Measured scan of single mutants.
Amino acid sequence: QVALSRTQVCGILREELFQGDAFHQSDTHIFIIMGASGDLAKKKIYPTIWWLFRDGLLPENTFIVGYARSRLTVADIRKQSEPFFKATPEEKLKLEDFFARNSYVAGQYDDAASYQRLNSHMNALHLGSQANRLFYLALPPTVYEAVTKNIHESCMSQIGWNRIIVEKPFGRDLQSSDRLSNHISSLFREDQIYRIDHYLGKEMVQNLMVLRFANRIFGPIWNRDNIACVILTFKEPFGTEGRGGYFDEFGIIRDVMQNHLLQMLCLVAMEKPASTNSDDVRDEKVKVLKCISEVQANNVVLGQYVGNPDGEGEATKGYLDDPTVPRGSTTATFAAVVLYVENERWDGVPFILRCGKALNERKAEVRLQFHDVAGDIFHQQCKRNELVIRVQPNEAVYTKMMTKKPGMFFNPEESELDLTYGNRYKNVKLPDAYERLILDVFCGSQMHFVRSDELREAWRIFTPLLHQIELEKPKPIPYIYGSRGPTEADELMKRVGFQYEGTYKWVNPHKL
């Protein structure tokens, strides 16, 4: 086992960053958080920038500027975001240094004079007029057009580079997404736009490419001749908990499936790229999406959770019991969808996408189930092999396979070949997804960000279904809070070829 401390991990990262040409360590950078008073800024962006600063992973002359409508001070920003920093008493001095680099400007999102004030403020910072500028839009999409237009007109660096990070949702359907994309691309070049999907920053999602293309053993079996089906799962054990009003506007397909799960599907299904260059990788992902037809209604199961009468606390409440959810809402909190990649490698292999709230566990994984062994000599005792990439929690890679049961006879039983990170790298604290992705933006690497043509294809696949749901308002199937979801989803999976045995229990190697 390799035991690495946080300091050692960050030392390795620093070495990698400083050796590259793309990370300008000594240049002045300004990180501007648009929507600095909001939840995302408070819980994710400010803490992430602090962790990067604490670990010495930001360029040395980096300033952080918050911008929002609320009249706040840096002290206010500190008060609301610091509880999420997880700072230790030993880091007190470092924390003071961090907040000394912070400033805040209040202004409207659609007022040109406010942006001119913001620009004057940035120019007044040390070497601010020639600094590289990175704008993070932690804002609702309704203000994107006004904000990007004003940034472009008043706040661009004339000497350094300018980059803009856009948070999902990128529209509600193909038409609104196209409108937003066309607007942003009329102001910024594609190499300046970073559409963030934080799932692409997760260690195991990034590991998929290495697993596939750096190991000879997987190449020959990664196709329709050997793989019976692919299941991509995202499960949350909690409901909307008072935030249903926002969720109800989008629903589970827009929230998770059309982005996170579809991105994971691309990494499983794509061909080997010409290189690890950002556009070479994204070219292959677009090719996969172009091979997927629009979702067919007979390959869809929609569910909505109801309270568990035997549960406790939140578990007793259904989705419609959330006071922020519109009365009688038919918005799905669970969806199972089957897609097919219609190309030579994957023809006929079902890709089953499942996601839901208020389920029995927290889990995100990719599961490849292989065909049955031909010419069975073990009297149907063999179960199908599976390769599982567990994204969260407890990152893991393992192969479910058959071995001989101890004893006199040739009785096979299920076991696993474990390729888990935790076994080799004991207690290594890896940077989280937002840390990686923000560092990628500083480096100018777009590999783990969504390109406009990729986004367009993703919406093309799901828009007809979303429009049909909005028009017909089908009643989702009720499922109990804390269950596996509607049984109809299991029946759909069985119908397209997935075999669920229920006889195997994964042993978490992190707890051995």
Rank of each mutant, 00 (worst) to 15 (best):
I253V: 12
D255C: 03
M257L: 11
N259T: 04
H260W: 03
L262D: 01
L262R: 02
M264Q: 06
M264G: 02
L265P: 02
C266P: 02
V268T: 11
M270V: 06
M270H: 07
M270G: 08
E271S: 07
K272A: 09
P273Q: 01
P273F: 00
P273H: 01
A274H: 12
S275F: 06
S275V: 05
S278T: 08
S278E: 09
D279L: 12
D279V: 11
V281A: 08
K285F: 01
V286G: 08
V286I: 05
K287S: 09
L289Q: 05
C291M: 12
C291D: 10
S293L: 07
V295T: 13
V295Y: 10
Q296C: 13
Q296H: 15
Q296S: 10
Q296Y: 13
Q296T: 14
A297K: 15
N298H: 14
N298R: 14
N299Q: 13
N299H: 13
L302V: 09
G303W: 05
G303Y: 04
Y305C: 05
Y305G: 00
V306L: 11
G307M: 08
G307F: 05
N308A: 11
P309N: 14
P309R: 10
D310F: 13
D310T: 12
E312K: 13
G313T: 12
G313Q: 10
E314T: 11
A315D: 12
T316I: 13
G318I: 03
L320V: 10
L320R: 09
D321Q: 08
P323L: 14
P323Q: 14
V325E: 01
V325C: 08
P326N: 06
G328A: 11
G328W: 13
S329Y: 01
T330Q: 13
T330E: 12
T331D: 00
T331S: 10
A332H: 06
T333W: 03
F334Q: 09
A336N: 14
A336V: 15
E344F: 08
R345N: 11
R345E: 10
R345D: 08
W346L: 00
D347F: 09
G348Y: 00
G348S: 09
P350F: 03
P350Y: 00
F351G: 04
F351N: 01
F351Y: 03
F351H: 02
L353W: 00
L353Y: 02
R354K: 11
C355R: 00
C355G: 09
C355E: 01
G356Q: 03
K357I: 05
K357L: 02
K357P: 03
K357R: 02
A358S: 09
L359M: 15
N360I: 04
N360W: 00
R362M: 05
K363V: 05
K363P: 03
A364T: 15
A364S: 11
E365F: 00
E365G: 04
V366I: 14
R367G: 02
H371L: 09
D372W: 06
V373N: 08
V373C: 09
V373I: 08
V373G: 06
G375C: 13
D376N: 13
F378E: 04
H379G: 11
H379C: 11
Q380W: 09
Q380I: 07
Q380M: 10
Q380H: 15
C382D: 10
R384K: 11
N385T: 01
N385D: 11
L387M: 05
V388P: 02
V388G: 02
V388D: 01
I389G: 02
I389C: 12
I389L: 10
R390M: 07
R390C: 08
V391L: 06
V391W: 03
V391D: 04
Q392Y: 06
P393R: 05
N394W: 09
N394S: 09
E395N: 07
E395M: 08
A396P: 02
V397I: 14
Y398K: 01
Y398N: 02
T399L: 10
K400F: 01
K400A: 03
K400T: 04
M401L: 08
K405Q: 15
K405R: 12
G407F: 02
G407T: 06
G407D: 11
M408R: 08
F409I: 14
F409D: 11
F409C: 14
F409K: 13
F409W: 11
N411H: 11
N411L: 06
N411V: 10
E413C: 10
E413Y: 07
E414T: 13
E414S: 10
S415M: 08
S415H: 04
L417I: 01
L419A: 06
L419Q: 09
L419S: 05
T420H: 10
Y421P: 01
G422C: 12
G422E: 15
N423S: 14
R424C: 04
Y425P: 05
K426S: 09
K426L: 10
K426G: 15
N427R: 06
L430K: 11
E435H: 08
R436W: 01
L437A: 01
L437P: 03
L437D: 04
I438A: 06
L439F: 11
D440Q: 09
D440A: 06
D440K: 06
D440C: 00
D440F: 02
V441Q: 00
V441W: 01
F442Q: 08
F442H: 08
C443M: 14
S445H: 11
M447I: 11
E454D: 05
E454C: 01
R456T: 07
E457M: 11
A458T: 00
W459A: 01
R460N: 11
T463E: 07
L465T: 09
L465A: 09
L466A: 06
L466Q: 05
H467T: 13
H467M: 10
Q468A: 11
I469P: 00
I469R: 04
I469F: 13
E470D: 10
E470H: 11
L471F: 10
E472I: 09
E472Y: 13
E472M: 12
P474G: 11
K475Y: 11
P476S: 07
I477Y: 14
P478Q: 13
Y479W: 03
Y479L: 03
Y479C: 02
I480V: 15
I480M: 15
Y481M: 10
S483R: 07
P486H: 03
T487S: 13
T487R: 14
E488K: 09
A489E: 06
D490E: 08
E491R: 13
L492H: 05
M493T: 12
K494P: 04
R495V: 10
R495T: 15
V496T: 12
G497S: 11
F498K: 08
Q499M: 14
Y500H: 14
Y500E: 01
Y500M: 07
E501V: 08
E501A: 09
T503Q: 14
T503C: 12
Y504V: 05
K505S: 15
W506F: 07
W506L: 05
